[in-house]
Design a protein around this nucleic acid. Structure first.
Length: 299
DNA sequence: TGAAGTCAAGGCGTG
DNA sequence: CACGCCTTGACTTCA
């Protein structure tokens, strides 16, 4: 049974208001205070989105990793910008967390492709762990629950690369492990690879239906689905998108078709789950699916 | 001011 | 080995 439908980061209705980001050069030119201004803007805007979501009964939302830009960058740390310790930042974070709890919202984050735990480069792995720590710290202060990660690179030896992921996973601290989940991707690690890693580590599996359509070695069995859905301590989270030009197009469509949601619902029949809708039109795609109307892709 | 180029970052395919 | 692309939208610089 489908519980929440959610969307990621951008809200189309609130445009042109948007999140800000920041280049190193701007911090060098304008000073570290500029970064704090950007962060305060972003947090205030996030609070606005959270309240908008509640008003529209969207109780599932992904927070952008860029909410606090360059948070783990050496230059920013050198300039003594510690967002966790800033009272102005803490104040808004607490307000958001209170709202999230009150509204019973599910909040997640999704570090980008540069977070690679199984890299051969020690520095890359170290920075990836630091970035995961940042995500865990922020999610804790927002009242969030999930960090979704892909497995990483293949390096011409998928088995070896899986082993390195498992090894690095086991070295993570328990706070990060408490938030981390891994997702099948559309090029390298299919759902069976992810299930295999989960069996070695106990990590929860995020099933991406569209990635699975684009990249799979074989069909999912009922046992596979049971494994995925019971790999979670709480309600499982799955991802859904529609291909832009055709079924196996990896680029996302503006919306998600009712047929795709129906397909996913059929596959997961008998389980409870939340669905993250990954569509270019963001929350509009969620509202449209929920309206249960005939879709019009030309609008 | 609108358009074009750039961005903090890793892997991968191509040449 | 060098380079452009992936993906993303906002930033930044340049006409």
């Amino acid at each position: 049974m489908l519980r929440y439908l959610g969307y990621a980061c951008v809200n189309e209705h609130l445009k042109p208001e948007k999140f800000k980001t920041c280049r190193l050069k701007s911090i060098e030119t304008k000073g570290i205070e500029h970064l704090k201004e950007v962060v305060l803007h972003n947090l205030n805007f996030l609070e606005k989105i959270i309240r908008w979501n509640y008003q529209h009964q969207i109780l599932f939302y992904r927070v952008s990793s860029d909410l606090i830009p360059l948070s783990t960058h050496p230059y920013v740390l050198e300039k003594q910008f510690f967002w966790k310790e800033d009272p102005d930042i803490q104040k808004i974070l607490l307000r958001i967390k209170t709202a999230v709890k009150q509204y019973h919202m599910r909040i997640s984050m999704h570090p980008d492709q540069y977070t690679v735990l199984n890299s051969f480069k020690e520095d890359v792995v170290r920075r990836s762990v630091e970035y995961l720590e940042f995500h865990a710290d922020l999610l804790e202060r927002l009242g969030g629950t999930d960090i979704i990660l892909h497995v990483g690179g293949v390096y011409g030896d998928k088995e070896g690369a899986k082993e390195r992921f498992i090894h690095e996973y086991k070295l993570l601290n328990s706070t990060i492990k408490g938030y981390l989940r891994i997702e099948n991707d559309d090029k390298s690690y299919n759902i069976h690879d992810v299930i295999e890693i989960s069996k070695e580590t106990g990590v929860s599996v995020v099933f991406d239906y569209h990635h699975h359509r684009c990249h799979q070695d074989r069909e999912l069995t009922a046992e596979d689905i049971k494994y995925i859905m019971t790999s979670w301590a709480d309600i499982p989270k799955v991802h859904l998108s529609t291909g832009r030009t055709h079924e196996k197009d990896r680029s996302h469509h503006d919306y998600v078709t009712k047929a795709d949601l129906d397909g996913l619902n059929t596959l997961l029949e008998g389980y409870a789950y939340d669905v993250m809708i990954e569509a270019k039109k963001k929350e509009m795609a969620v509202l449209e699916l929920r309206d249960d109307e005939t879709k019009d892709f030309n609008k």
